[in-house]
Amino acid sequence: MIDRIFDVGYRRLDAGPRHRFAPWPIARTALLLAWRRRATKVGLLFCLGNVVLYGGLIIFQVLMQRFDNTGMADAALAEAVFGTAQEVLSSFVQVQFMTCAIALAIVAAGFVADDRQAGAFDLYFARPLTRMDYAAGKVLATAAVPLAALVVPAFGLWFVAVGGTSATHGAGLWSLGPPTMATALCGTLWLTGAVIGLSAMGEKARAVGAVFVALLLGLSAVGEALPAAGYPPFGYLSPVRDLRTVADALLDVGSRSMGVALLHKGGPLNASAWGSFLALVLQAALGFGALGWRLRREVVG
């Protein structure tokens, strides 16, 4: 076994530094695989549809305010019909939250479940990866969808509103940026945590997607019905209601205009915006916890 002369000997590949951020390639592969499916494109098309719709509303408002003084437009009437910038942004975040949930059920349900089913953990963890690298990669890939479809467009709508309107009207809109982003990030956090947690628990992407949508609808139904029946604390179970409460508190929406109400029917709110925020964070944390539990169970660390 040992008295043997080898042909060339071992030579290390000259590939530069070997300490790169491992989650990137994991996220990139997951997103690349998702992008190859037609259903993903359809789901994202729905998200784009919302952006176009609400973008149109914002642009209309901007134009009305710009030409308010010229007598060619009536900004007050436009606000009464199509809502204030606050209303449009708040409504967009809530509607896009639901659309993103459906898109995520298609795109991200298999991110961990498919790996488990295919036995891809063997390939990943025979490499210098930690469980944290893998989890971060999958979370990044999952979060990319709501970040791209919810947070970035919300920022874009606000930017258009601020940049396009006249200086007098624009001054009041600057302060809407951080609350809009905060609300969108709350939604992103919940969506990411919930879908990645369910993906870690399930084995088939379609089943995980169906359970995710059913969970969202089920929690929302319970969270709306029980408070109406006299049990207000159950309202915190509904992520939709929680997000509505957070959005309302942060953006100070107030009365609803006719146009926005047509696109998005509001509803009762929870008593505490902080309570709703904590409920969203807690539910998301449960999802991340499920991912951690699964990896601890299946992967030697």
């Binding site: 590939a15 530069g16 530094p17 070997r18 300490h19 790169r20 491992a22 990137w24 390639p25 994991i26 990139r28 592969t29 690349l32 695989l33 190859r36 499916r37 295919a118 036995g119 891809a120 063997d122 390939l123 990943y124 025979a126 490499r127 210098p128 990866l129």
Partner: peptide, 25 residues
């Protein structure tokens, strides 16, 4: 590994490249 059904929608090149990048390349 023995099993051979991993990422059906990736090309062979993409599959190998994705896994090779996990080594820090």
């Amino acid at each position: 590994p023995e099993q051979d059904r991993f990422y059906e929608d990736l090309s062979g090149f993409e599959f190998v490249e994705a896994l090779t990048r996990l080594h820090g390349l």
